[in-house]
Each structure stands twice: as structure tokens, then as C-alpha cells.
Simulated assay, not measured.
Amino acid sequence: MLKFATIAIVGALSAVGAAKAVVSLDDLRQPDLRGPAPAAAVADDGAAQIVKGPDGHFWAEAKVDGRAVRFLIDTGATTVALSQTDAQRLGIDVRGLDYKYKVITASGQTRAASVKLASVAVAGAQVRDVDAMVIEKGLETSLLGMSYLGRLSSFQATPRALILRS
């Protein structure tokens, strides 16, 4: 399963690299994508609704083990992928991890370590005991992949928003 997850992360990270290349060629008036994530709202039926960002991607601020992490939502990523910076902010000892999985990022080949997150929540859509990987180098933005999304009761992409139901 972890080999499959590693292969899927390679594809997802390649897609993120391609998306970053397209965004960098976009109009110079484009908003700074490193700023705060678009606000997630809770709909009348209790579903979390994430508005599509100006770059065409879905960005979310999630609570991971009680701490805020900005994610690019990536349905092509098998697992949640954490950058070194986000992993450290979550209190993960990144130097003590076993980086035994090889992955390819936009910056080239690197390694990843498997971790378990106690909880991940986006606007109330919470999942407990989420499998994730910490990427050793080359991942600037953490990815919210299918190890979270696939455990929701449903998620739906519309032309303007992503709707998450826990």
C-alpha cells in the first residue's frame, strides 16, 4: 500500500510542479498565492464549502492536530503530503523520521516518511487517524490528498467550490 501511495505522491507532486509553472506564467496581477487560504464556509446542511482560488485550485486552511495548515487540495494525491515546515509546526520531529520512500517533486527526487495525524478538519469536516507523508525536500505547499478526502462521506467539485461532507 505504501509503495502505491509513494507512486501516487510522485504523480501528484509532478502535477503540482506543472501547476506552479502555469501559475508563474500567468498575469502578473494575479494575487499572491502564499497569502491566506480562501475562507471555508459551512453550508446550511453542515457541509464544508471551499471556494475555488483565483488560480483555479482549491486551497484550504485545515486544523491538523489542532494547528492551522494551509493545503492545496489534491484529489490526485493518494495521501496527505506535508512540507518540512508544516510538519515541524505540527510538532513532528522531522530529523527523527525514517525517510525510506523515494518520491519525485518539481525540484527532483527526494524522500518521504510515513506519519499518522490524529485529526484533520476543514470547516468542521473532520477525519481522525489520517495517514500522511512528510516530504524531505522540494515540497513548498502541503497537499490534502485522498487519505483525508476518501474518508469523508462525500466530496463534490462544482465550477466554483469544493463541498466536503464528513
Rank of each mutant, 00 (worst) to 15 (best):
F4K: 15
F4P: 01
T6Q: 14
I9S: 15
V10W: 14
G11V: 07
A12G: 07
L13I: 03
L13E: 13
L13T: 14
L13K: 00
V16L: 12
V16Y: 13
G17D: 12
A19D: 15
K20W: 03
A21Y: 03
V23Q: 12
S24Q: 05
L25M: 12
D26P: 03
D27W: 06
D27F: 03
L28S: 02
Q30R: 10
D32H: 13
D32S: 14
G35N: 10
G35H: 10
G35E: 13
P36F: 05
A37N: 10
A37C: 05
A40C: 10
A41C: 00
V42A: 08
A43Y: 03
D45K: 13
D45R: 06
A47E: 04
A47W: 13
A48W: 06
Q49A: 04
I50V: 07
P54V: 06
P54S: 12
D55S: 14
H57T: 12
H57V: 05
F58T: 14
A60C: 02
K63M: 09
K63P: 08
D65L: 04
D65T: 07
G66I: 04
G66S: 09
G66P: 01
R70S: 08
F71N: 07
D74G: 02
G76S: 06
A77N: 09
T79A: 09
V80K: 00
L82D: 06
S83M: 07
S83H: 04
S83L: 11
Q84N: 15
Q84A: 06
R89K: 14
G91Y: 11
V94R: 02
V94W: 10
V94M: 02
R95F: 00
R95C: 04
R95H: 11
R95M: 12
G96K: 11
D98G: 10
Y101Q: 01
Y101I: 00
Y101A: 08
K102L: 11
V103F: 09
I104L: 09
I104C: 05
T105E: 13
Q109G: 08
T110N: 10
R111G: 07
A112D: 02
A113F: 11
V115I: 14
K116L: 10
K116Q: 13
L117M: 04
S119C: 00
V120M: 12
V120H: 05
V120L: 04
G124K: 09
Q126F: 01
V127C: 02
D129Y: 05
V130F: 02
V130A: 02
V130K: 08
A132P: 01
A132F: 11
V134Q: 11
G138V: 09
L139Y: 05
T141C: 01
S142V: 02
S142L: 06
L143I: 05
L143A: 00
L143C: 00
S147G: 03
S147W: 09
Y148A: 12
Y148H: 13
L149K: 06
G150F: 11
G150A: 15
L152T: 12
S154L: 07
F155I: 04
A157R: 13
T158M: 04
T158C: 02
P159I: 06
R160M: 08
A161S: 14
A161Y: 04
L164R: 11
L164S: 09
R165M: 02
S166Q: 14
